[in-house]
Amino acid sequence: MKILYFAWLRQRIGTDTEEFVLPNEIQTVEDLINWLITRGPGYSDAFAKPEVIRAAVNLEYVNFDHSLKNEDEVAFFPPVTGG
């Protein structure tokens, strides 16, 4: 699985991309966030308020109950502020 982070999530986590094999117990985006939080203070800080974070899987916005597959590209980012 490939995970991308943008804006302040990228800054808090300290990287913009990472790749790993999806652990079996992770079924949904929410499971993934709960697992990422255990990986260090940068992650727990970035995901401290999950309600303000948006997730995309394979370039589409998804809800946190969305099911994940190992070949997915997942992105986490704050609400968008372009334009």
């Binding site: 943008f6 804006a7 302040w8 992105a75 980012f77 704050p78 609400p79 968008v80 372009g82 334009g83």
Partner: peptide, 26 residues
Amino acid sequence: LMDWLKTEAPFWKLEESQSRKNWVKK
């Protein structure tokens, strides 16, 4: 197009002023 772009297109603005850097809030 502008209204949708503002809420759907994945862009983020980092502002830099004299004293601080600040991610623009929605």
